[in-house]
Write a protein that binds this DNA or RNA. Structure first.
Lengths: 243, 243
DNA sequence: CGACACTTTGAAGACGATCAACGCCGGTGG
DNA sequence: CCACCGGCGTTGATCGTCTTCAAAGTGTCG
């Protein structure tokens, strides 16, 4: 039996709090087990709760005007959902949240967020940090979307994937369907599919759902994620040149 | 002589605070007068301050790899700059900030933000609200960028412009150069220029820098900004159909 | 007057979306 | 066990949109 609360406690939002404080905060949470493809909430549902992901992956997406769906993010353990909604007294969800595979989240009533922020100023600052990080990431990603080609985006995504999930670059399996990844990257499945052969030029081989990234050192250098923090290179020059 | 502090006091970030509290907070601020095209800070500069815009417009932008520049936002009176950086103990600016025309801002040392948030919990919540709004806006905009054509984006922008600056829709002058607007919308100047004639189809006439939006009622309905808050329509259907 | 930034317009090209056909696989039901 | 179906993924062909390059017109300011 996995201790889901234990995982939640290591979320960035509780950083710097004592164990007692964490326990105090978590006592208001309710563990929810989601089956594959089960919705956590839908676009238009009343906005009542705040969530911390403990296990599995949660896809956040919106329905396009033309039937398709655009995935804005795929969240995993220790990520938070709806933290940025703290100030909205009421309202409705702006997007859908669905479990990709089986998943577990802890659910808190929305007031909990505001009360916790008032009770522990450390928590409030953590929340601000999380939200602002989220904002920076969104902005950075928008920029990348605009500035990089589909091929670059895919290469970047695969490298980030490898880092985040701590996969072995020399060979790993895609954790999500290609359809989902394409949607996450804001492109059509066909476009995504067509980029894969091109990736060989930068030593990324994809066969089916198996990925191998050669030139080990290249990963840390090229991946875009680190750019957002301190570095000058928000789009890695040498990486861009390859396409 | 304009009372710039007075303008700053009406910023959303001070909402709900008493006059005494506002004065207490503002006493640490330093008024800075910027000439046209003067930089407030540059990409790479050490991240030291927080700013509130009191007068004029501040362009936030980044240099593309290929020499061009992408404007991420154009801020006006009562907007804040670098609020989302509160949690970064140190670091460098990720973008440039330059005065479009003459402008005035109030500058606060970065610690001021954190201390103020600790001193007045109301201020902390306002800050969270501002940042999360910013994040929502960025996300919404990214979605629009991806889903709408250049023509739609321009039409949307002009209508928002009209609302925000409280212009008379029947006739007003563009407050920024077309180059800046194009950059703000993430498109080339040529593309922007070419969309203008097309706008006549939806009753927006642009001649030089003069804009006239006919069909008065249409503005409130079509403009995209309101979508982000409560509405179901994140991309206005009837509006989209027109192009 | 000349330099320069801004804007418009034309023509060519690149890129991704769309439509369509097909292969693959897992599940369902006869 | 097999036939059928639906979801997924690949590949080809075509199309529309935006970018890019180029040239020329407009405006302002020294």
């Amino acid at each position: 039996m996995i201790d889901y609360e234990q995982i939640a406690k290591s979320a960035a939002i509780f950083k710097g709090l004592s164990l007692d404080e964490k326990n105090d905060l978590l006592k208001d949470g309710k563990i929810r087990y989601l089956n594959k493809k089960e919705f956590l909430f839908r676009h238009g549902d009343p906005l009542l709760n705040f969530y911390i992901v403990c296990f599995g992956s949660i896809q956040l997406f919106r329905n396009n005007a033309d039937g398709g769906e655009k995935t804005s993010n795929i969240l995993t353990a220790r990520d938070i959902i709806c933290g940025e909604k703290i100030h909205q007294p009421c309202g409705r969800h702006q997007f859908n949240a669905v479990a990709v595979g089986d998943a577990v989240v802890i659910e808190f009533p929305k007031i909990w967020l505001k009360e916790s922020a008032k009770k522990y100023s450390e928590f409030a600052l953590n929340l601000v940090a999380e939200i602002s990080n989220q904002a920076s990431m969104a902005e950075l990603e928008a920029e990348h979307q605009a500035a990089m080609s589909a091929t670059q985006l895919v290469a970047c995504f695969l490298q980030k994937l490898c880092l985040i999930h701590d996969f072995d670059p020399r060979g790993f399996e895609l954790p999500y369907s290609k359809k989902l990844i394409a949607s996450r990257l804001g492109m059509e499945l066909e476009t995504f599919s067509r980029t894969l052969p091109k990736l060989k030029e930068c030593r990324i081989d994809v066969l089916g759902s198996h990925v191998a990234i050669s030139g080990s050192g290249a990963i840390e250098e090229n991946v875009c994620s680190h750019c957002s923090i301190e570095e000058d290179c928000h789009i890695h020059e040498s990486f861009k040149k390859k396409f």
